[in-house]
């Protein structure tokens, strides 16, 4: 996956070399700028079995800061924020690969280096008994739950 580009970043940033689950790494540029989740906005995406995005709605474009052309064909890890513990995503993949629905609170990384918190649900897309990909819906999270998760994720990263 491509490194993030300095020209896209808004504000002061920290450069972090992020290790991804497939063994590759990516340079991410992170700011402390939070984007509030607009009320009623539901971010929808679908990926293939490898996590490559095959469909997304307008709300995905709005919240991620990427164009639809940049999103389609990219790995979902495009949004992965370094403050998210790897164990959270390991749980996501284990749950989905077992054919179950996953719920969780996620801090996502925007193209401009900022972030936004979501409450996410993901399910496996099963066609004739075979998992063909995954569908995910992200929406505005409860603020109390986010405070709990910030503490939990910090502990998991330490």
């Amino acid at each position: 996956m491509q490194d993030m580009q300095i020209d896209d970043i808004v504000g002061d940033y920290e450069e972090i070399n992020q290790s991804l689950s497939d063994g590759s790494s990516r340079k991410v540029l992170v700011t402390q700028q939070e984007t509030d989740f607009p009320a009623g906005c539901l971010v929808v995406s679908q990926t293939d079995i490898n996590g490559t995005i095959t469909a997304a709605n307008e709300s995905f474009v709005t919240m991620s800061g990427y164009s639809l052309d940049e999103i389609i064909g990219s790995p979902h890890a495009l949004l992965r924020h370094p403050d998210m513990p790897a164990a959270a995503f390991a749980d996501l993949w284990q749950t989905l690969q077992a054919g179950n629905k996953w719920y969780g609170y996620v801090k996502n990384l925007r193209k401009d280096g900022g972030f936004y918190w979501v409450y996410a649900t993901a399910i496996p897309n099963i066609r004739e008994g075979v998992v063909q990909g995954y569908t995910s819906v992200r929406r505005e999270p409860s603020k109390t739950k986010i405070e709990e998760c910030k503490k939990l994720y910090r502990e998991m990263l330490n």
């Binding site: 929808v44 719920y103 993901a122 399910i123 897309n125 569908t135 819906v137």
Partner: peptide, 14 residues
Amino acid sequence: AEFMIDLMDTLAPK
């Protein structure tokens, strides 16, 4: 239709 059905499943309450 299958995509929409998957989406409706995703929206179902926990």
